[in-house]
Simulated assay, not measured.
Amino acid sequence: MKTTVFLLFFLVAFSCSDKTGAEEDKAQLLKLHAQQRQAHFAKDAKAMFARSSPDMISVNAGKIHMSSGQSDTEVFQNYFNSVEFKKWDDVKPPIIRFSEDRSLAYAVVDKLVVLTTKDSTGRNIEETTHYAWVSIYRKQKNGDWKLECIASTNEPEKVVPL
Rank of each mutant, 00 (worst) to 15 (best):
45 A>P: 05
34 A>V: 01
15 S>G: 02
27 A>P: 02
43 K>D: 00
38 Q>V: 11
49 F>P: 09
17 S>Q: 13
55 D>H: 15
41 F>Q: 07
20 T>I: 15
45 A>V: 06
37 R>T: 14
27 A>D: 04
27 A>F: 05
45 A>R: 06
43 K>A: 09
56 M>V: 06
30 L>H: 00
17 S>N: 04
25 D>R: 14
61 A>S: 12
51 R>Q: 15
41 F>C: 04
45 A>K: 00
40 H>A: 12
41 F>V: 12
35 Q>H: 05
46 K>N: 15
51 R>N: 08
47 A>N: 05
57 I>D: 04
30 L>S: 02
42 A>Y: 02
46 K>F: 00
33 H>I: 10
49 F>T: 14
35 Q>P: 03
31 K>T: 06
18 D>M: 14
50 A>N: 09
32 L>D: 04
38 Q>D: 14
29 L>Q: 01
54 P>S: 02
47 A>L: 12
31 K>R: 05
19 K>P: 03
58 S>G: 08
63 K>N: 14
53 S>G: 07
54 P>T: 06
65 H>V: 08
65 H>R: 10
29 L>F: 05
50 A>E: 14
47 A>W: 00
44 D>V: 02
34 A>G: 01
27 A>K: 09
36 Q>M: 11
34 A>M: 00
58 S>F: 09
56 M>W: 13
58 S>P: 02
50 A>C: 09
55 D>A: 12
58 S>D: 02
44 D>C: 06
33 H>L: 10
21 G>H: 10
33 H>K: 05
53 S>R: 04
26 K>C: 03
52 S>E: 03
54 P>N: 11
55 D>N: 15
59 V>T: 13
53 S>C: 06
20 T>Q: 09
65 H>T: 12
32 L>M: 13
29 L>K: 02
20 T>G: 05
37 R>F: 01
61 A>R: 14
31 K>M: 10
49 F>G: 02
60 N>W: 13
33 H>E: 14
22 A>C: 00
57 I>T: 14
46 K>V: 13
52 S>N: 04
21 G>T: 10
50 A>D: 12
45 A>L: 00
47 A>R: 08
32 L>N: 06
33 H>N: 09
38 Q>Y: 04
24 E>T: 11
54 P>Y: 07
36 Q>P: 04
18 D>H: 15
25 D>C: 13
43 K>T: 00
38 Q>M: 12
21 G>V: 01
24 E>N: 09
